[in-house]
Simulated assay, not measured.
Amino acid sequence: MHLNIKDGAIFVADSHYNEKNQDFLIFLEKLKSKKIKTEQLFLMGDMFDFISSESTYFVKRNQKLIDIINELAKDIKIIYLEGNHDYNMKPLFIDVLVVKREDQPIFMKYQNKKLALSHGDNFTPNLYNIYCKIIRNHKLLKFLNSIDYNNFISKKIYYTLMKKNICHNFTAFEELAKKRVENFEADIIIEGHFHQGKEYDFGNKRYVNVPSLCCSSEYMLVEQNIFKKVNL
């Protein structure tokens, strides 16, 4: 997949939307009202604190945002890279290009440069890869949904996640970023997942970590080869 990224494209990551973290809804409503404008929107994963298409409880909790995204997708090119909190979502989004973890990175072009985009939880040890396959298994998730009486499983997940503090300063992040770029055959690597919002140059490669909308109320805009953070 090699699509062209245009100037003015917006990248949003890790909003972890729930009743406590409302920035993603605010962002989408600003897009809907044209207070924020773009032709291309990249949702870099973990936009919801948790969601899968199999979970009746989480789909219902997030239906308002699902509807807005589907409405926006009629006029804006939206690419949604699934994260480790949001997966199996293609049935929820009709006109959105949903990219599963196993299909990441996706490759794009921008000003004659090759870009690689991923959520950021790939290129990981085999044990984590096995875990990811298990928790994304469609039949398992359908079964868990069927025994989720009074939403006791879903509510446990929801309120446990909401209590977590996910915003930390990763002191060794530059070292991690340097190791990660070795996995990509691209000029620019763009990821979310790490909640750091930092950018590094390693030789002829540039690494861009999209800030967490939840942690800093920022998203990223690309213009004239500059990836700049924008306050919500």
Rank of each mutant, 00 (worst) to 15 (best):
Q63S: 09
K64G: 01
I66D: 01
I66K: 01
I68C: 04
N70C: 02
E71D: 09
K74L: 07
K74C: 01
K77N: 14
I78G: 12
I79Q: 07
Y80I: 02
L81E: 04
L81Y: 15
G83V: 11
N84Q: 08
D86I: 03
D86R: 01
N88K: 06
N88R: 13
M89A: 11
F93G: 01
V96F: 05
L97C: 07
L97K: 11
V98I: 15
V98W: 04
V98T: 14
K100D: 07
R101P: 04
R101T: 11
R101S: 14
D103E: 14
K109Q: 12
N112D: 14
K113H: 06
K113R: 14
K114N: 12
A116G: 15
L117Q: 10
L117W: 08
L117T: 08
H119M: 11
G120Q: 10
G120P: 08
N122T: 14
P125D: 13
N126C: 02
L127G: 00
L127Q: 04
I130F: 10
C132H: 07
I135R: 15
R136K: 14
L140H: 02
K142E: 11
L144G: 10
L144Y: 08
N145K: 07
I147V: 15
I157Y: 04
I157Q: 09
I157R: 11
T160G: 14
M162K: 12
K164S: 09
N165V: 07
H168A: 09
F170R: 14
F170H: 14
F170C: 10
A172Q: 09
A172W: 07
F173W: 13
K179E: 15
V181P: 13
V181I: 15
V181D: 10
E182P: 00
E182L: 12
